[in-house]
Design a protein around this nucleic acid. Structure first.
Lengths: 124, 124
DNA sequence: CCGCATACTTACATTTATGTTAGTATTATA
DNA sequence: TATAATACTAACATAAATGTAAGTATGCGG
């Protein structure tokens, strides 16, 4: 749990409050958030579908970052009252509104990152 | 110093290598990097000018993140052989090419962040 | 009765990011 | 001789992010 008050947190809040760029990055910058958003851009997914498409993720972090994305209003989480449990995730309109940004980020990154990396398994 | 090999690092490298969005975010996502880039978007600045415009930053981190931005090719650093020392920083063409992204990030953030934050001192 | 499915939770460990504090080199100025 | 300027560096402390490992609830199927 984050400390209620620390210089670290104060600085982050100051920057996020006054710098629109930093605020946006704060919402999507967690380790697995962009891979998650990239997958949900294609449509609704269940938890296990997301998890299986990201073999290296730890479940604790996957769930944590899904919760944060939900808290920040970027994705919906729908639970079906079934056994075994069934949960679906999909983008909210706010999440969808990130699309132009994600596209530019993706194009810029793909253009500028070192070439040697192209051979690695695609995540986005 | 970062551990030479850890799951944490491996995962980050995997994501950055295959996800253009994540690669871009990795270059600009440090705590003070966007405020720095925002300031340099207006033109060349000296170290002390940057430092004074960010009163809350620690110098260790400011220098660290300037070095990282330089390493990643987003800014130039020019040292004049003088005493006291004079160093100038400015955006490279690669740094300038981020402008459309930063603009979208800024607009999206300004539109969507909580209203109560508007009253805080502007950093960007 | 046991094993399985799914979608998590929990406690702890490790790694990483950022901040704190004091210091440095060199020349100029008083 | 002391103080000041600028642009940093270094050692350590603190905070935060991520990963590891084991576990859970419920109903279904064999």
């Amino acid at each position: 749990m984050r400390k209620a008050s620390s210089k670290n947190l104060e600085n982050e809040m100051l920057i996020n409050a006054s710098c629109g760029m930093a605020y946006t990055i704060a919402l999507i910058g967690g380790r697995w958030k962009l891979p998650i958003l990239g997958r949900l851009a294609a449509g609704t997914l269940r938890y296990n579908e997301i998890r299986k498409s990201l073999p290296m993720v730890s479940e604790r972090i996957l769930i944590l970052q899904l919760r944060e994305l939900e808290r920040d209003g970027l994705i919906y989480r729908k639970v079906y009252p079934e056994v075994p449990p069934k949960t679906e995730y999909r983008l909210t309109p706010l999440g969808v509104s990130l699309r132009p940004i994600l596209k530019l980020l993706s194009n810029w990154g793909a253009t500028n990152r070192p070439l040697a990396a192209e051979s690695v398994m695609a995540l986005s």
